[in-house]
């Protein structure tokens, strides 16, 4: 579930998983469990329709990203906004909800790392997340909720010449 970056402190996969589960439970309740999903290392997220990232900077540097598939993003949004089933969430609603999701995960990841650090406002995009070439994957958690995949990853700055 995680790649290794030497000499930089990285969050443990199990902590990122637990934080994600807490956020999920609070937003969606426990009527359906968030289950692990087996994905080959290095495989890009296959169904990404929405991605949101937040940057932690200060005592620790890193980027926390959440990617999720279209249907899941919309369901999450409907639930957070309590929209009736016959209504549609707008793209701007989805961007807002997914942004709040990464804000919660990111803030809790920040609290597990050396500080003090600052959490950026979330940046949300439709489509797969783009990762800066000078960053390295520190930790990745692949999950599935009601058949819909979701991925949380943490990237840290790449050390030294590449």
């Amino acid at each position: 579930m995680s790649a290794v970056v030497p000499e930089v402190e990285v969050p443990a996969s199990e902590d990122v998983l637990a934080v994600t589960e807490d956020v999920w439970m609070a937003l969606l309740g426990d009527d359906a469990p968030l289950l692990p999903r087996t994905v080959a290392p290095g495989a890009p997220f296959d169904v990404a329709a929405w991605s949101a990232a937040t940057t932690i900077s200060g005592g620790w540097q890193g980027v926390v990203t959440v990617e999720l598939d279209e249907a899941l993003a919309r369901r999450l949004t409907m639930r957070m906004l309590a929209l009736p089933a016959d209504e549609q969430a707008s793209d701007s609603d989805v961007a807002d909800a997914v942004g709040e999701l990464v804000n919660m995960v990111g803030g809790n990841v920040k609290s597990l790392m050396p500080g003090p650090s600052v959490l950026s406002l979330p940046a949300v995009a439709a489509g797969r997340a783009a990762f800066s070439s000078d960053s390295a994957l520190a930790c990745r958690v692949d999950l599935v909720w009601q058949d819909a995949p979701v991925r949380v990853s943490v990237h840290v700055p790449q050390e030294g010449p590449r």
Binding site: A26, G107, N108, K110, P116
Partner: peptide, 27 residues
């Protein structure tokens, strides 16, 4: 009501005049 959950952040907010503090995510 915030995702900021380090002890020092809670202390800072209380010192600045916050009466209570809820960490996100919350039920």
């Amino acid at each position: 009501v915030t995702t900021e959950s380090e002890q020092r952040q809670i202390v800072r907010a209380l010192a600045a005049g916050a009466h209570e503090y809820v960490i996100k995510p919350f039920t």
